[in-house]
């Protein structure tokens, strides 16, 4: 039996979603060179979300534990991201960090203001965020920075030495030497 006009018109109401819907569901990851060597970086439609050294191989697991979204590899990341990774300067990037606690978020925001080639003590961050006694918590928040390198938590040091780093003190030394912050 042929379809009548009404049925034909109804069949014409099917509609594909705009392409941007797929980007709201899936995140992308890419591998790029950086001052830390090869790094894996995940980003969502809101911005850079996670960064780990490629050698660790933990990017997907850690990203998904937090975001619970599919993560697809791309060989065509935004140019701004590749540039930022090459130079280690992530100041101009957008980040997807809304899941952080307000405290951790303020710590990382403060860390972003430290220029390349300079370092600050942990107490400086604590004072800057209006919580001068929270030095230990500042260290913890920096240690859980989901996007190290781009948000330069390596530029926060102890008064009597470099202090810890999420990827080890050797990596911290390399980064700060490369930036001319230490000899």
């Amino acid at each position: 039996m042929p379809l009548d006009d009404l049925e034909q018109a109804l069949a014409g109401l099917a509609a594909a979603p705009p392409a941007r819907v797929f980007d709201r569901i899936t995140a992308r990851w890419t591998r790029a060179t950086s001052p830390l060597g090869d790094v894996d970086v995940a980003y969502t439609e809101h911005g850079v979300a996670w960064l780990r050294p490629a050698a660790l191989g933990t990017l997907a697991e850690e990203f998904k534990a937090r975001f619970a979204r599919p993560l697809l590899r791309t060989d065509h990341p935004p140019a701004a991201l590749t540039d930022a990774l090459a130079t280690g300067d992530g100041g101009g990037l957008d980040y997807d960090l809304t899941w952080l606690t307000p405290f951790a978020s303020s710590v990382l925001s403060a860390a972003r203001t430290i220029p390349r080639g300079q370092v600050r003590p942990y107490t400086w961050i604590a004072e800057r965020i209006g919580n001068p006694k929270a030095v230990r918590a500042v260290g913890s928040a920096l240690g859980h920075n989901p996007v190290p390198l781009l948000i330069p938590c390596h530029r926060i040091v102890r008064a009597d030495g470099l202090g810890q780093y999420i990827f080890g003190v050797d990596a911290k030394t390399t980064l700060l030497r490369g930036e001319g912050a230490i000899e």
């Binding site: 509609a15 819907v21 797929f22 599919p70 697809l72």
Partner: peptide
């Protein structure tokens, strides 16, 4: 994850409609 992209592609029109 890549399989899910295929799932999306196959059924996105159904869900969105």
């Amino acid at each position: 994850d890549t399989g899910f992209a295929g799932l999306y592609d196959a059924y996105r029109v159904y869900v969105h409609t």
